[in-house]
Design a binder for these strands. Sequence first.
RNA 1: CGGGGUAUAGCGUAGCCCGGCUAGCGCGCCUGCUUUGGGAGCAGGAGGUCGCAGGUUCGAAUCCUGCUACCCCGACCA
Length: 490
Amino acid sequence: MGSKITSRAENYSQWYIDIVQNAGLAENSAVRGCMVIKPYGFAIWEKMRDVLDKMFKDTGHQNAYFPIFIPKSFFSKEASHVEGFAKECAVVTHYRLKNAPDGSGIVVDEDAKLEEELIVRPTSETIIWDTYRDWIQSYRDLPLLINQWANVVRWEMRTRLFLRTAEFLWQEGHTAHATQKEAVEEAERMLDVYATFAEDWMAMPVLRGVKSANERFAGAVETYCIEALMQDGKALQAGTSHFLGQNFAKAFDVKFLSKENQQEYVWATSWGVSTRLIGALIMTHSDDKGLVLPPTLAPIQVVLVPILKKEKQTPLILNYLREIEAELKNAGISVKLDDSDNYSPGWKFAEYEMKGVPLRIAVGERDLEGNNLEIARRDNFAKEIVSREGIADRVIAMLVDIQSNLFQRASAFRAESSHTVDSWAEFVDVLENKGGFVYAHWDGTSETEEKIKEMTKATIRLIPFGEGESGKCVLTGNPSARRVVFAKAY
RNA sequence: CGGGGUAUAGCGUAGCCCGGCUAGCGCGCCUGCUUUGGGAGCAGGAGGUCGCAGGUUCGAAUCCUGCUACCCCGACCA
């Protein structure tokens, strides 16, 4: 039997779907646009969640939970916020069903119409700020640093597993501060947390910067983001952090009494990452044989496979592997010993490669005799026979090496897929033929960004932080303060 | 919502034009034996309202009508 996975060269989208399905990460559900996250996929999300949650706690945040339903009237309070989300909201209008009078089944009971319709949250700013009004009275209540882990619903026209689904899981941080400076610092701090997570844990290099007005979050003053580059040359927004100014404080009348005994509106931020990160992880590292996971997020870091030939050796080999399993577990490594006898070793090799397990240890008769084992890496397929002595230390070192190799490989890919261009012809050529990040000058207007999007489908992914060299806009020739990063995006 | 397409076992499909089906095949599943260093072999077995509802006909997976669902392309998007 050959590979079940379409190659990236043949059809990148199909390759992605094949990975998600064959690695057992998720599948489409009976509900349009909504996915079922399967145990192996959810295990990855749990790891991400645990790491991020600790990072949030370490930066002073607490978790809380707000309702999934938001009264419709809340939405209209912040004008640009409604405008941004109105087109993709699910709405609850009734609260009861009844048997159809003609016996044809269950129907909505028209007598049970809600006085005020409820929106299924696409994001929680409104309900949270409505609540914060009561929580915040004086500067002593600030900063208020809250995060919630939740599901949200955005009624998307077209969906893709993990990358865009009607319902998805995420975390949303919502903070309130006494000063603009503090709020901006918070938004920047959380962007750093995301970037650190992406690079150190996902082994995925990211660019950090600011969104243009067109791409800014509905209701934000400034949106900061991290952007990663996928293997097909398209950019993926992996996390966003928003400085909301006093927009929500004013819309929901959230004021505090300052030290100087003055009523002032609070300053806000919000920030989030979602299960989309799993899509990013897949498209950053995986290959034509399946998923490739960075060791720090892999649910199984090492799989142990016995090679059983002669019946009488079976218990010896299994015992040998159980000892190795115990040793690795003691060293804090997640191990799976696959002693099932209904699949051949070859089948297991292929299966765990599909699932992206970073290391595989195989033990057969030969290894038993020499007190050895075979260890194989998922990232570069290197295989070697090593002594069983000191295996835990060796495995730990190899996991560290795989983690850094994945990051370096992704960084090298990004470097060779980043292009600096100065003419319109070059700009179009790179986007059409190479893809990747394109550093080009832009005159700073939304109109120009729109035109470029219409002509090339590329958008400004971000405006890098800091000062840059000035120049002339790649489209209009008007003055540009600095280069920005263009790309086609997911 | 526009344009195109598909619907047959858990998955992938053949059959449809030209009605004769008791619906075939591969993968997967179950049982047994032999196997096991890169997706094992043999034997036996289970599994189908042919998307739904009507119609034509001696006879419909196949022809006709209506409906429903899903997929792809476009507008919208973390």
